[in-house]
Structure formats: structure tokens, C-alpha cells
Design a protein around this nucleic acid. Structure first.
Length: 422
RNA sequence: GCCGAGGUCGCUUAGCCCGGUAUAGCGCCGGCCUUGAAAGCCGGUGGGAUAUUUCCCUCGGGGGUUCAAAUCCCUCCCUCGGCGCCA
């Protein structure tokens, strides 16, 4: 959510952005109109309340002196009526204003490339070298060969897009988690396992409202949602608080299972464990002063780059364009791993700078010399296990269907070097 | 889940019984003093609106009683203690 002062002082910035995103300018002008209405009403209400307080005080005095105050009570009755009406109107105007304000997307960084959809994203760098091979098996074919997952029976007990990870692959998943957690802890990130369920109010602070329909699972009869990423609880953690950033940015490595509805997603490319309803992820979350956020964005992206370099998977970094960036981020980079079986780059990491969009919604502030201000929040995948596993399986396959375990993961696999095909 | 005690400004705390301007300390910011610092002293300290100097709001959340609610009543949330259940 954007601060009201942006709507009041520089609405042209918002309008310009809405144009870049191909969205209606009414989104912003509605907010401005409703804000004016609210301000008129609040001013009137304050005047009425000031009057009430004066009368109320005078009643106290009259009572103390033992004098009659029945006349004053009549004025008060009328005042109360006016005030009741005013309060209803004020509340309604504010509620409407903020419900409109909630759906206005974040202001984009000027550098975000202009584009209609994901085709407008720009490749900024390439890492690693692609292995050469005549024929590439897909990760789901390899899963079968190495007996790494049981999708069929997972469908029986849970439904499609679920999986049992088994044996060496389950172990490899833990290795990926351990590896990335260790890397982040060495860089000073505070390892945190968050709650996996969140209430609606906290959740509204951190996501696009459409996600309640398309992404998060709701628990029946409870005000609780399964988290889609540990970014959500980690960022919402300091809701309604004033935090200290004197000693530098707050850096967290979150570890959680993530639950996603994945509505509307179909297709052959989503087979196997690429797109699933549940997966583990190590996530980076940073809360920092506005002046530090660009540097922090580079840092979390570089951490992710570092992880995939060490895993020796070929990948590229792309700069997400205006049409693909979504509601919350001001700037976003993705890392796409090379998936040789489909001859495509596919998303494994997303690193966003959300600036103050989430902190305004959460009413999370930090102390400055002048008072309080809204910090910036950033998040990036370190490793999402199922997708990283799929990338490892494909890129590290051998002619007979074995999989070479990345060197950096072997210490968590009892120095095992290969997962053999059965 | 049951019983009891609690939740007050960034932190700690008084006020609650008995309704009438939310108290004090710490921290922080600024000033005086100082070669510099500390100490000391003085002032400030959350949110909102605004005619920019005034008003309003804020005592866990919501509702109610009242001219007036931190204070009384109802309800929900959370914390602590005891009991129960339990990986």
C-alpha cells in the first residue's frame, strides 16, 4: 500500500505508473476523491468532539458547584446525534478509501523495463555452461529411474501435484536446505522457522489481495491460511511495531514448507515435481532503511546467484518488466535455471524489493531522528527444493540415467557422489 | 479445554476499587555547559486533521452504559500461573 502523502503530494507519479502497467487511472483518482471526503468529515467530527469535550467539562464544574445543568444536557443530546452520524460517515469514507488504496500497486522503480508480459523481461546475465548430450531425460523420467518420488500414491492420499520424496532424493532435499542455510548463516542471516499458518489481517499486510483466491489455502472454520512462503510470516512479524534499525538491516533466513493452490496452472511442463501444492524453501527476508534497500536487493540476489553457481547449474538472471512484476514489488529479478529436456530457462528464484509497500500496510515503522518512518522490505528465494532438485536431476544426468550429486551437497550425503538408476 | 491473575506511549511503571487533562523513571532527540566527552540542568518524545496553531484521537481489539470511560458492564484476542490433555 502506498502512503497517503504520495496520493496527496505527487499523484502524477501514481498515474504515470498505472499507465505503464496498462491499468485504469481511476484506481488512483478514486482514492484521492475519497480522501478529500474523509478529510472534510474528520475535520467536522473533530469540531463536534471539541464542542462535546468543552460542554462535558462544564457539566463537571456545574455539578461540583451543585448547580443545575439540565439545559446543557439538551444541547448535548443534539450534539451526540450529529456526532453519531458523522462517525458513521467518516468510518465509511475511510474504509472505502483504504479498500481502494489496497489495490493500487506499488510504485515501480524507474529502471524497470517496460513490457506487456513475461516476453518483455530482459536477460541481464548468464552463468555456468550447459552440458552436452544427445538425448535429455526430463526430471520426471529421472525421478522414476532413480526411484526418487512416488507421485501416484501421493495422488491417492492427497491429490495431484503432491509427492512423496523418497530415499536419496529426500536426503538430497535436506542437503539443499542445509547447504543454503549454512551459506546464509555465515553471511549473518538469522535462521528463523516461522508459523506455517497466518491470520487474515496479518496476511493482508504482505500480499496482493487476489492471492487469497488463487494462492493460499484457507483452514475451514478458522481465521487461518497456510503460508505460501516464509516471506509472509517473516515480513508480517513486526506488524504494528516500531523497530530499531540503528544496528543495520534485519536479515533473516526463513525455512518453511510452502503451500500453494496453483489455480489455473496446467500443462505438460508442470509434470513431476516442478509445480506442486507443497514444497520446502529457504528464503531470505530483509527489513532495512530506504537508503539501504538497493544494496540489499543486490545482496540477496547475489546470495541466490552464489548458491546456484556452487550447485553448478547453468542459469540466467532476468530483470522483470512492468507487465510481469505484479502488485507488491518495485523491482524484481528472477533466476532461471536451464532445463535441458525442454530446452528452456525456467524460474527457480525470485528476488524482490518491495520498498515500503508492505511496511505501510503492516504499519511497521522504524525510528529516525525526525520521528518514525516506513522501512523497506525485501525477499528472495535462496533455494526452493523441488525446483532445485528438478534442475539438478536434469543437468546432472548421465547416459545410463544416474544423477551426479553436486559437490557442495555431498558432505550432507555421507560423501555419496552419485544417485544410481534402479 | 477449565480456574485464577494480568495487558497503560519505544521499555518499565502509577492511575482502575471510588468515572472528570494518562503519572513517573529509563531510553532516544535537541539545547545549555565543555577543548572534547561524561555528569548535571532545561525542553521535546505515538497517530490524524489543519486556517501552522489550534483541534481531535490513542491505555490489547470490538461493542455497551454515561454529559463524560484507562477506570463500570459485555465480548473476543493475547500473556503468565494452576489443573486437564498431549508429540
Amino acid at each position: 500500500m502506498l502512503e497517503m502523502k504520495v496520493f496527496r503530494e505527487s499523484p502524477e507519479k501514481i498515474l504515470e505508473d498505472l499507465k505503464k502497467r496498462n491499468l485504469s487511472e481511476n484506481l488512483a483518482s478514486d482514492v484521492i476523491d475519497l480522501d478529500n471526503r474523509w478529510r472534510t468529515l474528520i475535520e467536522k467530527g473533530n469540531r463536534l468532539r471539541a464542542k462535546r469535550n468543552v460542554i462535558s467539562k462544564s457539566i463537571g464544574e456545574l455539578k461540583k458547584e451543585g448547580q443545575d445543568f439540565s439545559e446543557v444536557l439538551k444541547d448535548m443530546a443534539k450534539l451526540k446525534e450529529d456526532l453519531n452520524l458523522n462517525e458513521k460517515e467518516t468510518e465509511e469514507a475511510l474504509r472505502l478509501r483504504d479498500s481502494k488504496r489496497m489495490i493500487v500497486p506499488n510504485l515501480l522503480d524507474n529502471e524497470v523495463p517496460i513490457g506487456k508480459d513475461e516476453d518483455g523481461n530482459i536477460e541481464v546475465s548468464l552463468y555456468g555452461t550447459k552440458n552436452k548430450r544427445e538425448k535429455w531425460l526430463s526430471h520426471q523420467e529421472i525421478l522414476e529411474k532413480i526411484n526418487g518420488a512416488d507421485l501416484k500414491r501421493a495422488a491417492k492420499v492427497s491429490g495431484r501435484r503432491f509427492y512423496f520424496l523418497t530415499g536419496d532424493l529426500a536426503r538430497l532435499e535436506l542437503a539443499l536446505i542445509n547447504f543454503s542455510v549454512e551459506l546464509l548463516c555465515e553471511k549473518g542471516y538469522n535462521l528463523t522457522t516461522p508459523p506455517f499458518l497466518m491470520n487474515r489481517e496479518a496476511y493482508e499486510g504482505v500480499v496482493d489481495l487476489n492471492d487469497f483466491e488463487d494462492v493460499m489455502y484457507k483452514i475451514d472454520n478458522h481465521d487461518l491460511y497456510l503460508i505460501a512462503t516464509s516471506e509472509h510470516p517473516l515480513t508480517a512479524r513486526f506488524k504494528n511495531e516500531i523497530i530499531e534499525l540503528k544496528e543495520g538491516p534485519l536479515k533473516y533466513a526463513g525455512i518453511s514448507t510452502n503451500f500453494r493452490k496453483e489455480v489455473g496452472a496446467h500443462g505438460i511442463s508442470d509434470r513431476g515435481i516442478w509445480r506442486v501444492h507443497q514444497f520446502s524453501k529457504v528464503e531470505q527476508v530483509i527489513i532495512c532503511k530506504p537508503e539501504d534497500s538497493e544494496e540489499m536487493h543486490d545482496e540477496i540476489l547475489n546470495n541466490a546467484i552464489n548458491i546456484f553457481e556452487k550447485l553448478e547449474i547453468p542459469f540466467r538472471v532476468i530483470d522483470i518488466c512492468t507487465g510481469d512484476i505484479g502488485t507488491v514489488a518495485a523491482r524484481k529479478y528472477d533466476i532461471e535455471a536451464w532445463m535441458p529436456s525442454s530446452n528452456k530457462w525456467k524460474e527457480v528464484v525470485s528476488a524482490s524489493n518491495c520498498r515500503s509497500y508492505q511496511s505501510v500496510r503492516l504499519n511497521m515503522r522504524y525510528r529516525t531522528k525526525e520521528g518514525t518512518s516506513f522501512p523497506h522490505t525485501l525477499n528472495s528465494t535462496a533455494v526452493a527444493t523441488t525446483r532445485a532438485l528438478a534442475a539438478i536431476l536434469e543437468n546432472n544426468q548421465t547416459d545410463n540415467g544416474d544423477v551426479v550429486i553436486p559437490k557442495v551437497l555431498r558432505k550432507w550425503m555421507g560423501n555419496q557422489e552419485i544417485i544410481e538408476a534402479k
